[in-house]
Every structure is written in C-alpha cells, then in structure tokens.
Design a protein around this nucleic acid. Sequence first.
RNA 1: GGCAGCGUAGCUCAGUGGUAGAGCAGGGGAAUCAUAAUCCCUUGGUCGGGGGUUCAAAUCCCUCCGCUGCUACCA
Length: 516
Amino acid sequence: MAGSKTYYLTTPIYYVNDVPHIGHAYTTLACDVLARFKRLDGFDVKFLTGTDEHGQKVEKSAQAAGIAPQAFTDKVSQNFRDLVGVMNYSNDDFIRTTEPRHVASVQALWTKLLDAGEIYLGSYAGWYSVRDEAFYGEDELTTTPTGKKIAPTGAECEWVEEPSYFFRLSAWQERLLEFYDKNPDFILPPGKRNEVISFVKSGLKDLSVSRTTFKWGIPVPGDDAHIMYVWLDALTNYITAVGYPDTTGEYAEYWPADLHMVGKDILRFHAVYWPAFLMAAGLQPPKRVFAHGWWTIEGQKMSKSLGNVIAPEQLVTTYGLDQTRYFLLREVPFGNDGDFSHAAMVQRINGNLANDYGNLVQRVLSMINKNCGAQVPQPGPFTEADNRLLGAAHALLPVVRAEIDVQAFHKVLDAIWAVVGDANRYVDEQAPWALKKTDPPRMGTVLYVLAETIRHLAILTQPVMPAASAKILDQLGQGEKVRGFGNLGPAGALTGGTPLPAPQGVFPRFVEEPKA
RNA sequence: GGCAGCGUAGCUCAGUGGUAGAGCAGGGGAAUCAUAAUCCCUUGGUCGGGGGUUCAAAUCCCUCCGCUGCUACCA
C-alpha cells in the first residue's frame, strides 16, 4: 500500500480547560470511523487529535491550582488522552500545543507570514472590561447617564489601546470567496457553507493575532512582549503534525488535509481564518471542513449549571462501547443537532442491534453450529433468491463509500441495515429449519448464503463497531488478515468446511434495572 | 433589525410539479431457527394558516404565524 492514496483527517485540538464530554467524544468518534473505514478501504491514513493548551483561561486555572501552567496542562490533557482508550479511538498521533515541535512550527509560520507582509504591528483598541477580561463591541454596550459604558455582564468598560500584531485578513476576502466558489465541498454541510460565505461577504477586518495581556502562549519571534493569538497557535497544529516547517516527508505525503472535523461553534476559525493563514503563507488550504451539530440531553441543552453534562465513560459503562458508538452515528443525520435520550438509546440497542443484527447473526450461526457440524456449509447451486441477497450484500461497498465521502454516517448505517432486514426476511422465507427435514443440502446452501451475507455486514460495520464486528468475524472463522474491504465480494467468500467456534451473543438486550 | 433555513402520520424524519412515504410506536395475524428475537398485513396526515400560478402544488410565487441558525477577535 506504500505510495498509495492517502487520507489525512483531524479533530479539533480540545481545550484542556474543559472536561471531556459527549460532544468531544462525538467529534473524535466521527473521525475514528472515517479513519477506520479508509484504512479498510486501502488508504494510507493519518488520523490526528490532540489538545490545545495555551491561553488565558489555562493560565488562570493553573494559577488557581497553584501550579505552573505546563504542569497543569500535563495533568488535565491526560483527560483527553484517556478518552482515546475509553472510546477505542485509532488516532495515529496525539498533538499538544505545548510540544517543542509545535512551538517551532507556529513560529516558523509566523515568520513566513511576517516576511510575506501579511502581518504588521498596529494597535488594538476597544472597550475593555477589567472584571471580565474581555473586549466588547460598541453595539454590545449600554451607556449610563454619566457616560459610563457597561458590558452585557454589567461590568464597567474602559477604552484601552494596546500594541498588537494584525493579520491582513481584509485583503483575503475576495480570494476566500473565490476559493469557496471553486471548492463547493470545502464546507459541509451546505447550510453551514452559506453562513460562512455570507459572513465573508459582509466584510472582513484585519485580525488581531497577538496578545500582551497574559503570558501563557507561544512568544512572537523577535518580540517577547507578545504571545500569539490562540487560534493562530491552535490551527497550526494541523501542519505541525505532518512535520511543518519541513515540507518534505509527511507534509508532502499528507498535506493538504482531506478533512478537518469540527463542531459548528468553531467553523469560522477553520473555514475563514485558517485557509487565509495558509494561503497567505503560500501553503495549500485543507480540502474540507465539516461542521457537525450538537447534542442535547433528554431535550435540554447540556450545561454545567443544569448538571446534565454526560461523560463518555458514563455512556460506555451504562450502554457498552460499540452500542454508544453506533447510537451516536445512527440516531442523527450527521451535521444536524441531535438529542440524546435514554429511551432512544435503548430503542437503538434493542431494536437495531439486539433484535435485527445480533439476532440475525445468532440465529444463523446457531443453526450452522447445530446442523452443519459446526463448519461453514458446502453451498449447492444458488437460486434467484440467494443471488438477490448476495447481490444486495455485494452492492453495499460502493454505496457506503459514497456516503462516507460526504460524512453521511447515518446513511451508511441505513444502507447496511437495509441488508440486515433483507437477510432476516430471507431466513423466514427460506425457513432452513424446515429444509433440515426436507432438503438438508438446500438448508446448507441457505445457511451458507446467510453466513456470507453476515460476513459482508460484519466487515462493513467494523469502522463503527470494531469490537463487536471482530467478534462476529471470529465466529465466522475470518482472521484479521481477511477483514479489509478488498475481501468483500465473491473473491473473498467463505470456504465450505471451515470449522467454526460455538456462537456467542454479540449484542445483548438492554434490560432496565428495576428502580430501587 | 438584516441574511438564511425549518414547520409532512403519536415520535424522528425522507420526499422539491404528476395518484402522500420510511423507521419507531399502536392494532391484527403467521412462524418457532434465534437474544420472546423474526416475518406478513394494518390504523394513522385537509404536507403550519391563507391567497396565487398551473391541466396538476408538500413541491413554484405572495403573505401571515411559529421555531432555529448566522450576524468576528472567551475558546
């Protein structure tokens, strides 16, 4: 596979000040599924995630904790590194913005932008609230009778000016619009693309890209009074991880990234600032930014004050890992907001997983185990019904591949489940339990067709449910070397006579605990 | 306020000019290989209100109502 098609995808780097919740888990999960899919489909994949560790909030939190910022981030970034294990992510790298490789990369990018005349020293002026430590726009403020300016938070603001470096974002308006126009799939979903375009069309101002009010960040080369704006720092991680400023090696291989997956709240940074920074530095912008939606919990916004923030570990413990992964990607059209509810989760687990898929596997493998000497049966000639079911299974890959390429995970699963339904109907129509008495060879053929269909299903569900799919493939006697998409289709078909282990349930029903 | 989008069966949604759809939930039946799982049939909607264009509108236009998103420097 060396030198073959590559696929580079990234999650945002998560702000270490946050505690990982279902939203973080969701973003990385989507990437994990894409990464696993592309690997199985023969791509040379690089899947990156990491943590954003600079900024004023981190500095303050560290202070409050009475430890140095670096020690603080070492500690809290562990929460996100632990999430990798909890959710069974397959990332190839985990970047931290406090790593030397990243500092070097950001400073190199800065220098490049400065040399290109894209960054200049000016001064940033605005209404600043000392209490909130934030600037406010003129239109956000109310004026008291005595002429004082009051922020929405009620804090008094004062006019301050401080030196700041600016990025000439205003100069990139037209080139960005042209870029969006020439790359209609750069921003997905399409509704979000329209928002970005209308934002850019409304006019861009130069962007303040340095700060002097706090210290925890990457110093501006040659001017230690300034540290870099967190987004310039953070976004650059995507090229740091492929070796920038070295543009040979991995950079040449993987850049531009195929996909930046982001939550809708940070779309602008990725779809406006980032391509502008890159183009200004003479580098290629990424191929796509996908902005996904947010989860509500039982119909309510997730918030600390409501106390309904769900930790990923909690979901995994309660419902199971692959069940959780399945639910998050099946329940909601990817890109939309969605609601997480216990009832919906149980519905998915028991309906789709236990009853439809799990029971299909169980009923077929049990019959084979009991009636075919625990071996893959030897098939006879295929009937039209046999070929129809096998044909549906064979036809899945191109469909699923097309949906994956537009991040339509729900449609991927819909398509796979359509074949699960076909297979269950086929079992009932063929009634192998009756054939057992009337036509045992035909029973063998029917069970073979089913086993072969299940092989396809399990290979294709691997990206979403790696562990459960592996269990099914184990039970079909399919070793790890024959689980790639290259083995789909008749060429990789099961061989009659292959001994099979005793079947075990893969997706147990979710049974409610009796209320104490 | 401006711009954009949405409002279709009890629930979640698909359907963008040609006889109203899916999944789940509800009702009835079949089967008994299987995790009491499966399969078949079925109830249910004047497609937010009103007006217009058209032989024909959920689909196009106007208007009203309701909801949502975006409207830059905390990330």
